[in-house]
Design a protein around this nucleic acid. Sequence first.
DNA 1: CTGAAAGCGCTAACAG
DNA 2: CTGTTAGCGCTTTCAG
Lengths: 350, 350
Amino acid sequence: MCAQQKRVTIKDVARLAKVSKGTVDRVIHNRGEVSEESRAKVMEVIEQLGYKPNMYASLLASKREYKIVALIPEFSEGEFWELMQRGISKAAREYAEFNVDIETLCFDQFSLNSFEHATARLLVELPAAVLIAPSFKSLTAQFVEQLRINGIPFAYVDSKIDDSDYLSFFGMPLFESGYLGADLLVGRQAAEEVAYFRIHRPEDTANTTAIRREGFFSYMREFYPQCKIYSQFLLPYDQESNEQILDLFFEKHPHIQHLITFNSRAFILADYLKKRVLDNKILVGYDMLESNIACLREGVITYLITQRIENQGYEGIKSLCDKLLFHNDPPKLNNYMSMDILTRYNVNYY
Amino acid sequence: MCAQQKRVTIKDVARLAKVSKGTVDRVIHNRGEVSEESRAKVMEVIEQLGYKPNMYASLLASKREYKIVALIPEFSEGEFWELMQRGISKAAREYAEFNVDIETLCFDQFSLNSFEHATARLLVELPAAVLIAPSFKSLTAQFVEQLRINGIPFAYVDSKIDDSDYLSFFGMPLFESGYLGADLLVGRQAAEEVAYFRIHRPEDTANTTAIRREGFFSYMREFYPQCKIYSQFLLPYDQESNEQILDLFFEKHPHIQHLITFNSRAFILADYLKKRVLDNKILVGYDMLESNIACLREGVITYLITQRIENQGYEGIKSLCDKLLFHNDPPKLNNYMSMDILTRYNVNYY
DNA sequence: CTGAAAGCGCTAACAG
DNA sequence: CTGTTAGCGCTTTCAG
């Protein structure tokens, strides 16, 4: 019934601009070899008709191939970065049919050296675009400068280096996530003392947890300035030492009930609490690692603040592909993803 | 470097099966007119080569058109169903280029009659597929039986009628959402009395809130069997009456602190609390209506349990389109979406 | 029942 | 600089 608006095609444009399809194609992909006159005319007609190229026809006809590499920390099963990789893989599957090949390049997030090696290797490959999880600040800055020189577009996930002209960023609003953590910890149950636990990192690290910590302190200063806040360093992998450290800590602070970690390893603390049967604690942590989830289910972790990490990887790659394939810029430069609150009662459907 | 696996095309299949492209196409879309012999041969080759049709080429060549209608309750701006419509519209935009036309048909969720009218109108249109938000149980059952007879695939959003052969369902796990609501309400702060507020609905309503209520009671029985639970009916649109009702209620229960609504209208209660400056309450509600969000931001609503309602509409339509266009069945029949917990501190990034 | 042929909208040589 | 032409992989007539 309704006047079926026929899709306007390159042929229509050609006809109305009084040139051939070939010329229209040339101006669309501005690959030169067109007189300014024709060019202007074609652009005008395109504007007028609201011509949008049919991507499927385009992809079908072209034999373009793109290589994208994702640069992220190496990981074992169940770790934070595995989730990121899943999103990347998902995007990889989706864009495979568009002839884009996505490769993940990993480095040791505790070694500057390893990062440098990785970036060097990457630069010789000259990929069409790069996704970066910037673990080290100044090294990343140097690296993206190289990308810029080579005209390679790049996007950030997890965190970002502010003054580089990245295509897009996908991550959690860190300050706010610390603020939220504080509220979940003490918002409905005023506390006289709280403790947070941290992990030592090398210098130059793009320390996401530091900003989170600031958010936490900001909340505490605002609402509970009198609350005592203790901090304690833990080791990332050495369980035994951690037990000693924690024994000492809880000996010294036997009444402390409210605990929080700003990194993704809340399970270290949770495992300790289980072992010592300290079950009157409130523990807030971040990120849905398998081990964290398990502790959440048992009720040892009270809240987990998390995000769809997979989405970050997925959307990051997507933004690069859309740029490459369709010349589409992402709707937003900085994409702060939602902070999801997980408890034992909603985790199963997440 | 790597042996570029050429995509296997219909031509390859035709060649190896010693038939023409036309015949291959006929068996792929099993539209008959093929001898059993050719058919078998072609199938065999397809299997062997792992042939997958190129959907873009297919869409490009074909002039198929599909009409899908979405049957949902009518809504004003800011209401629950508007969010659903947004997801539907998003999908509509995405699939427009595949020549699928998506129309939304609304009915009055408080009127059986209106629903019957809508379904009748829908059935004469004979759309290619239908998305249903089943407000009324037996009427929906009758309706989908008609769809079944006509071979029209359909999907449910929000809630479902169990024993109908729907293509997919997208919604919240209702029982669990009630359970979670209870935990947020009293889990960290034992209560002696709590109250929930409800809205009257016609008979036959697919009452999502009823199941939610059950979840709530289940939690309370399990953890706080001694807690007193009061209930109070409110009216969906009559603010003045509600004020009287609530004045009476809080006169009778002056000490009650923990309040919950299982429908999406927590803002009714919140507005009342604001007006009477009752600011020592904990209020848990569902769904992120604009008005709820506003109250959450002000701290009058403590927690909002919600889901990406837009996603339900989007995914529901998507599952129908994928079926129609690509003959893909959805990965899961029942898709329970995550229950997201919103507080004033994470709502801004949702 | 089957094959041949003409596109779908776009790209990419290739003459001119 | 520009028009022409031959496909990309698939669908859809239309003879036979």
